[in-house]
């Protein structure tokens, strides 16, 4: 299947390895700055909510983790699909490396949501649409991770995982629209509404910082994982040997 030349170059492991060193460092720096701004704004500057008091501050980690749990899943499924169609090693690596990070975000969304639910709803857990579909997302991630270690051959594992991820994509719109389709304890969207967001700027700005911090966190840690995988995949190529300083005598 046709693929533009620049995309091929981007998919070349050596090129990507060098690029990722730079990107992961800068993403890490931006991530730390955004975390500091977001935490200070969210925990100190933002006023207490008139209904929920100070407990609403859990939002600053709950909402970004929940968004990222969906975003990472989309990246994982799309990268898996690209790997499936064009057999690009790098796409398979990105898909596999995303899974543990996505599972962590999903876990955080569930746990912080549960801790938030206790004082606000009076219960840790209800089996309603939003919470159940998010739990299914966690199981999809865990299933994907288990599938990766079930195969000896990494490329077979990547293909099997990609199919699982693509089938599981059905769950993503269900999670997103669950609060609108079914009646639920979970509150509806406050920020992504088409008309004006129903949240005050002093509460919104720290949230945006936290969202950006989580996103750069994902990029930065993903690239570290990707680099290890590239080295393992490409360990017999000359550029890896050169990189590890063992080119002497091996021709």
């Amino acid at each position: 299947m046709y693929l533009p030349k620049w995309l091929h170059q981007f998919g070349a492991p050596k090129y990507f390895y060098d690029l990722s060193l730079c990107i992961s460092r800068w993403a890490g720096i931006i991530c730390i700055i955004c975390f500091i701004c977001g935490l200070y704004g969210g925990l100190v500057l933002a006023p207490a909510d008139y209904q929920q008091g100070d407990s609403f501050r859990i939002m600053y980690i709950h909402v970004p983790s929940a968004w990222m749990s969906l975003f990472v899943y989309m990246v994982m499924a799309i990268a898996g699909g690209i790997g499936l169609i064009w057999r690009i090693k790098l796409a398979e690596i990105v898909a596999r490396s995303s899974a543990p990070i996505g599972a962590s975000f999903t876990f955080l969304a569930l746990v912080t949501g549960s801790i938030w639910g206790k004082p606000m709803w009076g219960t840790w857990w209800v089996w309603d649409a939003r919470l159940t579909s998010e739990l299914i997302l966690l199981f999809l991630y865990l299933g994907y991770i288990a599938l990766q270690s079930a195969f000896e051959d990494r490329r077979v594992a990547a293909r099997a995982g990609a199919i699982l991820a693509l089938v599981g994509i059905v769950n993503i719109p269900i999670i997103h629209y669950s609060v609108e389709w079914w009646s639920t304890l979970h509150q509806g969207p406050t920020i992504t509404k088409l008309d004006k967001p129903s949240i005050h700027l002093s509460m919104l700005i720290p949230l945006l910082f936290m969202v950006f911090a989580f996103k750069t966190f994902y990029i930065s840690t993903l690239l570290i994982r990707v680099r290890s995988e590239i080295l393992e995949y490409e360990c017999n190529t000359s550029w890896v040997k050169q990189l590890l300083g063992i080119n002497n005598g091996i021709k």
């Binding site: 008091g53 100070d54 859990i58």
Partner: peptide, 13 residues
């Protein structure tokens, strides 16, 4: 505001 245990445990986790 009385929610310390909830807020800080979630930030800690």
């Amino acid at each position: 505001g009385g929610y310390g245990a909830y807020v800080w445990s979630s930030y800690g986790i």
